[in-house]
Design a protein around this nucleic acid. Structure first.
Lengths: 345, 345
DNA sequence: CTGAAAGCGCTAACAC
DNA sequence: GTGTTAGCGCTTTCAG
């Protein structure tokens, strides 16, 4: 079972040069005559020769690949981020190896270990909701592993981080609801301890207090779909609805779908009974029933930016001292799930 | 910049044994004493040692990875297939490297070449709509590269193939429309020459003729969103609507979204003005406006089955003579986009 | 400008 | 049972 069995040796023999010449010509090395360079390159092209990746990686101690660790690929936000990552990696001739954690910290550690065994040249990671202990990442960081965190980022670690301005996004969403006459605004999110969720909550409560509204704790629900049963989600949602909110801010793509299903099942009319706005990158939002108002994150740009920073770290010889903490603005897309509420005075 | 810099040499030295002993112990080789095996394994665990993947791959001429070539990952069907693929690969300790062609044959060839340079142990491919010349794959096949085609499969090639029964799916969809009183049934698909599309068309026309309905050529539209402009899609759709169909069968996830947008934009009410049924794996179909009737493919199972067959090919020493041509049944999910048409006699 | 040769980390004959 | 050794295909000094 051998494929790609043509080696630079074969090319060298066929052309009557040495393997080193072939190697150099292929990597466009300076100080090799244009003529031989051309000869080698053309011949390689012709016989469809591709250097063995493992051999070069082994020798050069780098793999021309980067590792990405995310919760789930099948999530509109992450798939858009990935698209951005790949667009940059591709242009640099790098491969991207994706690992899913499905939200589990054990799988996260295993994924990182695996990626390192693959000799990835750098790591792009979005923390799993479960992860609290980041000493593993710190260690890696100390060993100068190029690393960029995105979306869900740890606090006390010295690396590039890129994410969206969750505070601003939630703040704007609440202001939007207030502007449309809603006052009893509820909040629904998944893992409470995630930095993104905490920031969104901060934006939510700040916007409320700016409007002189006292926040009602019962209007806030945290619900981890991964760990909780579907039953308990419905139960919790029912309890939230019992507090009689007139509007709701939902954080997360998973919760977006589940909550919509809940509304349909229970005959809750949107926006007549409840106005809803979602932190979601669903690009099908327009086709929903009703079309949903969303706060969308510039996922593609986040992916691109994170990857650019990673390559910067990879290629820089010297220690990087100044790390970027980039926040992208979220965008509010108004659709039919937020209506106009007539405030009764 | 060195990570994972502990090698089996280090482990060997620390334990006072030879590198081969370590290697053998780690691969759980027979004929090594349980005691040393345990000693090596425990120590490796302890210092978090992971063998260099490129080195072992180089030596053993295999990478413990399989390559997957698809059009787009960000497509509900493919992402479900991928999920199935990964579930099997994971359990075998294999990595999967995904390449997207975005529907272009050049990118397809480049992707395969790339995967081979990565020494993948096998290939899982769904042909791009553009591909007509499959000699490249035939060559690979002759060289005994383990390979399984899925979804969009070539005709004249000796490998495993797994896909869904497109003929049956389309046939059932048309019968469903007929049962609900529709008679002027139109057909919309992307690339005409794709085997899947051809089979669906065959199912469509057969169902019509079984019902004694003469097919109207003007009711059939092929529209490649990748190569055509958005303008021309709308223009073609308008022409299709001008033929006054009472219902429509749409093939493909991309066309699903685009056609729904078209209907909304042009005020075409579903199902009052037009009943529509979609070949689509959108799991959000329920949330759409209106919820759409779909023919869904068992994508996850297709991915799993294809991967199992691939591993079978990889591990079989002897030439495989009997290749499987597996067809999974599609499932019709009835929702509100198909109503009841009153037939006027 | 080009070639010879050493070795990246690991595995697998082949010895003992 | 375990050690010795020769490469896997490539890059890269170091010589010419």
């Amino acid at each position: 079972m051998k494929f790609n069995h043509t080696t630079i040796k074969d090319v060298a023999k066929a052309l009557g040069v040495s393997t080193s010449t072939v190697s150099r010509a292929l990597s466009d090395n300076y100080q090799i005559s244009e003529s031989t360079k051309k000869r080698v390159q053309e011949y390689s092209q012709q016989i469809n020769f591709i250097p063995n990746h493992m051999a070069s990686g082994l020798k050069a101690r780098k793999s021309k690949s980067i590792g990405v660790v995310v919760n789930e690929i099948a999530n509109s936000y992450f798939s858009q981020v990935l698209d951005g990552i790949e667009s940059i990696a591709q242009s640099k001739g790098y491969q991207v190896i994706v690992q899913q954690t499905h939200g589990h910290k054990d799988k996260e550690m295993a994924s990182v270990a695996y990626l390192i065994s693959q000799s990835v040249d750098g790591l792009l990671v979005s923390l799993s909701p479960e992860t609290v202990d980041i000493s593993y990442f710190k260690e890696l960081c100390d060993k100068k592993m190029p690393m960029v965190f995105f979306d869900s980022v740890p606090e006390n670690i010295n690396t590039h981080k890129v994410l969206c301005d969750n505070y601003q996004g939630a703040y704007d969403a609440v202001v939007h609801l207030l502007d449309h006459g809603y006052r009893r605004i509820a909040f629904l999110a998944d893992a409470k301890h995630l930095s993104s969720v905490r920031e969104r909550f901060a934006g939510y409560s700040e916007a409320l207090s700016c409007a002189g509204i006292v926040m009602n704790e019962d209007n806030v629900l945290y619900c981890n779909l991964k760990s909780e049963s579907h039953m308990s989600f419905e139960h919790d949602m029912q309890k939230l609805m019992d507090t009689n909110p007139d509007s709701l801010l939902v954080c997360g793509d998973d919760l977006t779908c589940e909550s919509i299903k809940f509304f349909k099942k229970n005959g809750i009319r949107i926006p007549e009974d409840l106005a809803v706005i979602y932190f979601s990158n669903q690009d099908l939002a327009d086709l929903f029933d009703p079309p949903i108002s969303t706060i969308v994150q510039p996922a593609y740009e986040i992916g691109q930016h994170a990857t650019r920073l990673l390559f910067q770290s990879i290629s820089s010889k010297a220690d990087i001292k100044k790390f970027e903490y980039k926040k992208f603005q979220c965008q509010l897309q108004q659709r039919a799930s937020v209506g106009n509420n007539v405030v009764l005075i």
